[in-house]
Design a protein around this nucleic acid. Structure first.
Length: 566
RNA sequence: UGGGGCGUGGCCAAGCGGUAAGGCAGGGGACUUUGGAUCCCCUAUUCGCAGGUUCGAAUCCUGCCGCCCCAGCCA
């Protein structure tokens, strides 16, 4: 490795700048952040950005990051999600230590604080219906008007709020509101709702409560209770910041956190809206939340994307306040970069065609030594059996090749990787004109892939011994949506679903060592791409997912040729 | 005609008054027992537009234009 001086600039962005300045100027002693998901769905790559930001900052500045579930709405939240979120954050590579919290842990404290605001005349029970509240709220350009219940007495408010908690009223009968300013230009300040009545079972507190705090009344105070210093969220909460600050300013909170907002992650050919992801699952467009085409962390994991690649991608993309849509190619680059360095190389033939080496002894099996990863000499070598009859990729032979085609063709010599040079002498076709068998001769002096005379074929092919082969199903994946911006333009994005987002190949063949690749490990099928075993694999029935293909300049050339030739 | 934000190359993104980093994508070349990887080189006389301040502006000021978010008893 080269000797880089300490001048290597740390990754920086506006949030890290703020944290660094707060530390440097003594406004805080150490940084505390939090990742605060609502357990109402699976985490996706957009959440990965927030997770990497919050945990990343805590790690870089020697602070800590909490995992806090924002479980204030029992109608939408489930234990299943609480479990999956923890699994996904851990998989991404982060550890919250002892700092696992739930907003519901603070329900009693939050209630006490609400009572305090009522006593101070800063909150009131409103009997208006949801519709009435909406019509009193005004519009974006017109101020709202006060509820007729806005000025009722403290004692009556106290009594009513207590009875709300006691379960005396049905859902929607009353709410508790902060008394701020119905004429504010910021609609969040027009007497926001602090508590609503919801008779529902909560995944953590069960039936202990029938009133639940709103996001606005819970979030900042939860941060304050935990000593969070920097409460980092996405841009759409900017308008909530004045309210966040209003509550911490009007309540005896133990600390005063501050909120900062960044732009959420968007990717081309991808949709991250929970609503749409749910539809994809419910309408059977994909097989589930963990379908390898889903942008969920569980889906990406099943697809074979390494967590490190995701982290690198997030770092590469940066954090800013401008709305943006990142090209998926950047993600794919980050993932390939990790995989290229780490993934063991293996042989697999997706679309096999038979090769017979006429001058190779019948019945002989040689064990050829093949490097596990040319990028990493420490990965060592493995042994792959070589015999007279082999399989190669159908697309690696052309009867009548164009000038740019370097692979096997009649009369042409190519190298079989780590084995021998072979020259095609003949080929057989079936009645439909389809190639069924190639005949070749080999050069015994080329064993291992080089010859004394230094001949260098233009192509090197992967291969498999016909008598040492494991059958496999291979699932090829591509973008779920055809358009780079599926949600743009107002049309139904389901019309933009890529019909070839999943292509299932049967009759594929892989080398014997592949029977034992553990789930979660991604390998490279040499010259083909990165693949990982799918959990659908069963003894005797291997299933591989294509994580990503290799960059393919030949395919690019062919595509160009098609265009030029038009 | 309300409030809050944002506008730097195809896509991200540094830059914080001293004369446009970096990555991805794209193009060209070298090398190569993966048409992979790697390595070189090329791609903004210009920072939404127009004025102004200044010796000097992407950075400061004014005006305009464009885009995003907000009217859940969701988060």
């Amino acid at each position: 490795m080269n000797t880089e001086t300490a001048s290597t600039p740390e990754r920086s962005d506006f949030v890290r700048d703020i944290v660094a300045a707060d530390l440097r100027e003594g406004r805080i002693d150490s940084v505390v952040t939090r990742f605060p998901p609502e357990p109402n769905g699976y985490l996706h790559i957009g959440h990965a950005k927030s997770i990497c930001l919050n945990f990343g900052i805590a790690g870089e500045f020697g602070g800590r990051c909490h995992l806090r579930f924002d479980d204030t709405n029992p109608l939408k939240e489930e234990q299943e999600y609480i479990d999956s979120i923890q699994e996904d954050v851990r998989w991404l590579g982060f550890d919250w230590g002892q700092h696992l919290y739930f907003a519901s842990d603070y329900f009693e404290q939050l209630y006490d604080w609400a009572v305090l605001l009522v006593r101070d005349g800063k909150a009131y029970v409103d009997d208006l219906s949801a519709d009435e509240i909406r019509s009193h709220r005004g519009t974006l350009t017109e101020p709202g008007s006060n509820s007729r219940w806005r000025d009722r007495g403290v004692e009556e408010n106290l009594d009513l709020f207590a009875r709300m908690r006691a379960g005396e009223f049905p859902n929607g009968a009353r709410v508790l509101r902060a008394k701020i300013d119905m004429a504010s230009g910021n609609i969040n300040l027009r007497d926001p709702i602090m508590y609503r009545i919801v008779h529902a079972t909560h995944p953590r507190t069960a039936d202990a409560w029938c009133i639940y705090p709103s996001y606005d009344f819970a979030h900042g105070q939860s941060d304050a209770i935990e000593g969070v210093t920097h409460s980092i969220c996405t841009l759409e909460f900017q308008d909530h910041r004045p309210l966040y600050d209003w509550f911490t300013a009007n309540l005896p909170v133990p600390s005063v956190p501050h909120q900062y907002e960044f732009a959420r992650l968007n990717l081309t050919h991808t949709v991250l809206s929970k609503r749409v992801l749910l539809r994809l699952v419910n309408e059977g467009s994909v097989r589930g939340w963990d379908d390898p085409r889903m942008p969920t962390l569980t889906g990406l994991r099943r697809r074979g994307f390494p967590a490190e690649g995701l982290r690198d991608f997030v770092a590469m993309a940066g954090v800013a306040r401008a709305d943006s849509v990142i090209e998926v190619e950047m993600l794919e680059h980050a993932v390939r970069d990790i995989l290229n360095r780490n993934a063991p190389r293996r042989f697999a033939v997706l679309d096999p065609v038979k090769v017979v080496i006429d001058n190779y002894p019948e019945g002989l099996t040689e064990e050829m030594e093949v490097p596990n990863n040319p990028e990493d000499p420490d990965a060592g070598t493995r042994t792959v059996p070589f015999t007279r009859e082999l399989w190669i990729e159908r697309e690696d032979f052309m009867e009548d090749p164009p000038s740019k085609f370097f692979r096997l063709a009649p009369g042409r010599e190519v190298r079989l990787r780590s084995a021998y040079f072979i020259t095609c002498t003949d080929f057989l076709k079936d009645d439909d004109g389809r190639i069924v068998e190639l005949h070749c001769t080999y050069d015994p002096a080329s064993r291992g892939g080089s010859t004394p005379d230094g001949r260098r074929p233009k192509a090197t092919l992967h291969w498999l011994s016909a008598s040492h082969t494991i059958p496999a199903e291979v699932r090829l994946y591509d973008h779920l949506f055809t358009s780079p911006h599926p949600s743009a333009g107002g049309r139904d994005i389901f019309e933009d679903l890529n019909p070839e987002s999943e292509v299932i190949l049967s009759g594929c063949l892989v080398e014997p060592s592949l029977v034992s690749v553990p789930i979660g490990e991604t390998v490279q099928f040499e010259r083909v791409g990165y693949f990982c075993p799918d959990p659908d694999s069963a003894p005797g029935v291997l299933v591989f997912n294509r994580t990503l293909g290799l960059r393919d300049t030949w395919a690019k050339l062919q595509a160009q040729g098609r265009h030029d030739g038009a």
